[in-house]
Amino acid sequence: MIEPEPVFGDIKNNRGFKRILLQGLPNVGLEVGWLSLAHNLLKKAAVDAKSKGVKHL
């Protein structure tokens, strides 16, 4: 089972994103998609850095 709450907590607290900036369902979906993409890319970069032995990104 996957829990989505830690992802939203990370985006809000660690990335500083507090509110949706655009209006309208298509725009909000796009903005959330960009946030999800950024979160997943940062997570992938951290995993890759850990496997290569890099201490910090």
Rank of each mutant, 00 (worst) to 15 (best):
R15A: 14
P6C: 08
A38T: 12
L21I: 01
L42C: 05
I2M: 05
F17D: 03
M1I: 09
K50L: 09
S36I: 02
R19S: 09
P26H: 03
K43G: 00
W34K: 12
H39I: 04
L57W: 12
V32M: 10
V32S: 01
V47I: 13
H39D: 15
K55M: 06
L30K: 11
P4Q: 08
S36P: 01
E31P: 02
I20E: 01
L42Q: 11
L22N: 03
Q23V: 08
R19H: 05
D10P: 00
V28I: 14
K44Y: 07
L41F: 03
A46S: 13
R19K: 12
A46D: 15
G24R: 10
G16V: 09
K43W: 04
E5A: 11
Q23E: 15
K44R: 09
H39Q: 15
K55V: 11
L35I: 05
N13T: 12
I2D: 10
E3T: 13
A49E: 05
P26E: 08
L21E: 13
H39W: 15
G16C: 07
D10S: 11
P4N: 11
P6A: 04
Q23C: 05
S36E: 01
N27R: 13
A46I: 08
R19C: 01
N27A: 15
E5Y: 09
L37S: 12
N14M: 09
L37M: 07
K18A: 10
R15E: 15
L25E: 15
P4V: 13
L21P: 00
Q23T: 13
G29Q: 14
L37Q: 12
L30E: 04
E31F: 04
L41A: 04
K52A: 09
L25K: 11
S36Y: 02
R15M: 15
P4T: 14
N40F: 10
G33R: 01
G9E: 11
F17C: 03
G29S: 06
G16T: 09
I20P: 02
A49S: 14
I2V: 13
K55C: 00
P4I: 11
D10A: 14
G29L: 10
A45I: 07
L41W: 02
A49T: 02
K52L: 12
V54A: 06
N14W: 06
P6D: 04
R19L: 05
L42F: 03
V54G: 00
V28L: 05
R15T: 10
G9H: 01
L35S: 05
L37F: 09
L37A: 12
A49I: 05
K52I: 02
